[in-house]
Write a protein that binds this DNA or RNA. Structure first.
Lengths: 221, 221
DNA sequence: TGCCGAATGTCAGCGGCTGACATAATCTGC
DNA sequence: GCAGATTATGTCAGCCGCTGACATTCGGCA
């Protein structure tokens, strides 16, 4: 509120209002995750989350459509980022290579941007574990994943110049890739050691190597 | 209540109680589907469904854990039946052939057992359409599908004598197969003509043919 | 400084879902 | 047929997720 608080230059300065909004959103996510992991998803009420951040319940629902959404928010952003990375891959790269590069890049960036804290690799994996054994969360998560898969199919089809309704190879590749990722997560859930981003990348890589050629078939690799 | 009402022989006679229970269950499903398709899933209350069958709301929740479940019940039984058919395929059959035979048999039997009515092929497809554009139903459905997929993976791995955690080919094949089925459903959702069971079988077959060899890779077909 | 729009709080209410207890229907052995 | 054990159902009260409507306050901007 002093002299130069709102620099009008054409810079992408977010403004106080936007920053405040972002802060409450982050705080809600942080509080929600803390409570969920501490006392379980089902036995945490929205009121608790809201009052932990000192906002009303109604405000919570203006930030998130439902209780599921606040739990999945971080993961959802990660998945969106994965799509961006996939879109950014050079067109001459084969589809499987592009998928692999995008997912590896996604985990690497997470590791370097958030070495620790609620967005770190380990936090994300703990979140995945919680989702995996909370039926309602798993359902909501799978719905998101299905939507993302449709986008992936679209992107792959465009890269290859195919009609995704005619040629099912993009759909099949996307589904198979998803299966491998799930296997990697599962394999972590069993072993559950503290693995850094590089560990996760190695895990995914190992699984992907197992079925490179069989998958792409007569496509260019 | 006359002479021979409860034949005690070792026959699988269900008994009055069990039959009554089955009848109310069926009635609840039937009423629910009718209401859902008529006025939409969200704007149909559980009270409406219950009083349409003349039972209390509490009783409804003794039959179905939640509103989603009554909508997905028919489909769920169909999926269970698919698993049974898959398990019954001869061991010497290749995995993709077995999957194809099981799904085709599943649709065929539905067509012959219920040529019309709430369990017919067209009713099932309308149901799928409703699920597909009702977010909460889609989420619950995908959760069921994911569970079923894990079972399919297990069955395939046993047939081939593989460890599903080591060798990912069963997981990948199951995922790819699921993708093809979804494409078939989608393709119906767009064209939406009245197709009988044979039409659905042909549709699935056409999609499956498209990627037979590429999928199975170095497996026996 | 004063106005506009956006964010928040408050309140009332619907609907999904559950536990507890009472009642009525079926089943079982006699 | 008839007790008594089981089991299905109804009733009631209540929590919680979620929403619309309206009032209030706060940030942005001239």
């Amino acid at each position: 509120m002093a002299a130069r608080s709102a620099p009008p230059a054409a810079s992408p300065e977010p403004g106080l209002r936007a920053r405040k909004k972002q802060r409450t959103r982050d705080a809600l996510i942080e509080a929600a995750h803390r409570l969920f992991l501490g006392q379980g998803f089902a036995s945490t009420t929205v009121d608790e989350i809201a009052s932990a951040v000192d906002v009303s319940q109604r405000t919570f629902f203006r930030y998130f459509a439902n209780k599921d959404e606040v739990a999945l928010a971080v993961l959802a952003e990660a998945e969106d980022h994965f799509i961006e990375l996939l879109r950014a891959r050079p067109a001459e790269e084969g589809p499987l290579r592009a998928l692999r590069a995008a997912i590896v890049g996604s985990w690497r960036e997470r590791g370097s941007a958030h070495p620790t804290g609620p967005c770190s690799v380990n936090a994300a994996l703990e979140l995945i574990r919680m989702i995996e054994d909370t039926p309602t969360l798993l359902a909501a998560h799978l719905r998101r994943v299905a939507e993302q898969e449709r986008v992936v199919i679209q992107v792959l089809a465009e890269r290859e110049g195919l009609d995704p309704a005619e040629d099912l190879r993009p759909a099949v590749l996307a589904a198979a890739f998803g299966a491998v990722l799930r296997a990697a997560h599962l394999s972590w859930t069993c072993d559950q050691e503290d693995i850094g981003p590089e560990g996760m990348v190695a895990l995914i890589d190992r699984h992907l190597d197992q079925l490179g050629p069989a998958l792409v078939g007569d496509w260019r690799s």
